[in-house]
Design a protein around this nucleic acid. Structure first.
Lengths: 229, 229
DNA sequence: AATCCTAAATGAACGGCATTCATTTAGTGG
DNA sequence: CCACTAAATGAATGCCGTTCATTTAGGATT
């Protein structure tokens, strides 16, 4: 949905002003923060298959239709959850550590958060930052860190996007089944790949997904680090 | 669904043997190839929102329930489509060009194919290769190319997975709205990021997504290239 | 204190969805 | 010609997100 300059009285707002309006009815059972918290808890308990508007309403002791006074759609709820989760991503290292360590710490944290919420990746990957203030705050912290480290300004956004793309893809990878690369009955016809799978070096990591993530992340850190002034 | 060792008479098979069984009824209106082709055409015309089992059946002049004689679920159809699309990814450069050029050509082709089919990424990213023979064939071609180029065997799979993760994430990026990084009213509170967006260098590319993809891909090619013997 | 206004909750509907199943159809091997 | 069976049908199921006319209840206005 692009912009809508003068939409009159939209049912929901992103910035959680503490319910002023003019002051009329203060006894609302529901609000966006409550919905977000309940959604997060429901997803944790039932997963994304069990996350329905009806189930969400049930945990809030409310009729499903009541949710639509605070949220325009189920997708809206997912956006709220996504933005909350992004606030859990650790950007603190950008204030305290050298650039490469900060990127490493941020990237692992980012991947870990969303590997438990891969269905949100389709939402976050194409969501305008204006609709997700906490996500925007993360970008601010990261780009400030890049700037401070002498990263050329014209490439900051591209570098962040490249890292983020890698992070999202790697988050899926975490959830892949352990036997994803078993060739099964086709092993004879794929000798190179089958051998590569059999001899994969785990490099001390517990999960293959961690090895691949480390490999790609270090590649980017090394190459991007060389761009700094 | 994990393995099912002795499932009796499963309704569908991946390898398209030319309809033998014993030889009874040869006049089937439907088969997996026809379903795949029709699905691909329907998706092209109506997108993934318009892709329903009912709509698919309609294009085949068949009742929706008839599809279930050849396919166990809608997800199964998506797997068939995904595997077909993967066969469109260009791996030919691995036979004809040096490693770095081959990786570059393969990665751009892979991203271009799936940027038009991002809803399939959730499927392909966690799908066992045994369920997708053409996808397995792609892995074979790529890992053979890595092997021939002197890439250490223990890291071939991890390197491919890292590249693939980046490719999947980047495919989403292609579909992002042009104004995704507009901070809107929050611009004053995010000066570093807002400036980085304003001064982003497009480096001659038509799309910001291409700049980021190039940046990340070249980083990986450079770092992985150094691992070769 | 009585009235008005309005945000927010309700419950019944709607259309669409994937999927199931009892039944019918139509070729083929015996 | 018969028996068998894969494949097609069409009705039914249950769930989903969402809409809407209606009711409720608390602060504002007088």
């Amino acid at each position: 949905m692009p912009a809508l300059p003068s939409a009159p009285a939209e049912p929901h707002r992103q910035d959680a002003k503490p319910r002023r309006r003019v002051g009329r009815p203060a006894a609302a059972v529901l609000d966006q923060d409550g919905i977000t918290a309940a959604a997060l808890q429901l997803i944790g308990k039932s997963g994304y298959e069990g996350f329905t508007m009806a189930a969400l309403a049930r945990t809030l002791n409310v009729a499903p239709s009541a949710l639509y006074n605070h949220v325009a759609s189920k997708r809206d709820v997912l956006v709220l959850v996504q933005d909350h989760l992004t606030s859990l991503v650790d950007v603190s290292a950008f204030d305290a550590e050298p650039w490469d360590r900060a990127v490493r710490s941020w990237a692992w944290s980012y991947r870990d958060v969303f590997s438990k919420h891969t269905p949100l990746i389709t939402v976050i990957a194409v969501l305008p930052v204006a609709d997700a203030p906490k996500t925007l705050a993360m970008y601010e912290a990261v780009s400030a860190g890049f700037s401070r480290a002498g990263f050329p300004q014209g490439r900051i956004v591209s570098a962040i996007v490249a890292l983020e793309s890698f992070i999202f893809g790697s988050a899926y990878d975490v959830t892949a089944p352990a036997d994803i690369f078993d060739s099964g009955s086709m092993a004879e016809s794929t000798p190179n790949f089958t051998a590569a799978v059999a001899h994969q070096d785990l490099e001390g990591y517990a999960q293959p997904a961690d090895v691949a993530f480390n490999l790609g992340l270090e590649a980017m850190i090394a190459a991007f680090g060389a761009l700094r002034a």
